[in-house]
């Protein structure tokens, strides 16, 4: 493993485990630092903390927040909560898929520019349907509007 990566991991260790934080917090920090959770970092932490790697893997695959593969530069999260659903979230998703040329089981574009995800309610239902790009919330969306909005991230 590169020493640079090890330094980052040691930093995370000092910030979390050393203060009694649990492995969910550790994994959140790893993902903040690298964008996803790599196997090497789990093995490093498992060795550093004597917590079996199976516990890390169990947690990573349980919580939908964690990702085992790299994600795109921009994360488009379409809300599929109840309200957004009845207000047409599925049409927004199909429009984005079409515009980004994403196949049925693909979430990330080939150029690694976008990852499309869905979430069950971001708690902004009164401006449904809602799309979140990176951390910015876009309300009252429709297929046309979202297509235009996504375009602005292409530059």
């Amino acid at each position: 493993m590169e020493t640079q990566m090890e330094e980052v991991l040691e930093g995370i260790y000092q910030k979390t485990v050393a203060h009694g934080d649990n492995i969910i917090t550790v994994l959140q920090e790893i993902q903040n630092a690298f964008g996803y959770v790599q196997e090497e970092s789990v093995n490093w932490f498992s060795a550093r903390t004597s917590i079996p790697a199976s516990k890390f893997y169990g947690v990573i695959t349980f919580y939908s927040q964690f990702h085992l593969t790299p994600r795109g530069k921009n994360i488009i999260t379409v809300c599929s909560g109840t309200v957004c659903h009845v207000k047409g979230a599925s049409r927004i998703i199909s429009r984005i898929r079409e515009d980004l040329k994403l196949g049925e089981d693909k979430a990330t574009t080939k150029d690694m520019l976008f990852t499309l995800e869905s979430v069950n309610c971001v708690g902004a239902c009164s401006i449904a349907p809602v799309v979140v790009i990176n951390e910015k919330v876009y309300g009252k969306m429709n297929p046309e509007k979202i297509a235009k909005t996504v375009k602005t991230y292409k530059e």
């Binding site: 196997e39 789990v42 079996p52 790697a53 199976s54 516990k55 890390f56 893997y57 169990g58 695959t61 349980f62």
Partner: peptide, 20 residues
């Protein structure tokens, strides 16, 4: 005391497996 295997995924797709 080994914990070589664990639960992975959730719901219908739950699984028992070694890490990764």
């Amino acid at each position: 005391g080994v914990a070589a295997i664990g639960f992975a995924n959730r719901g219908f797709e739950s699984d028992i497996c070694p890490p990764f």
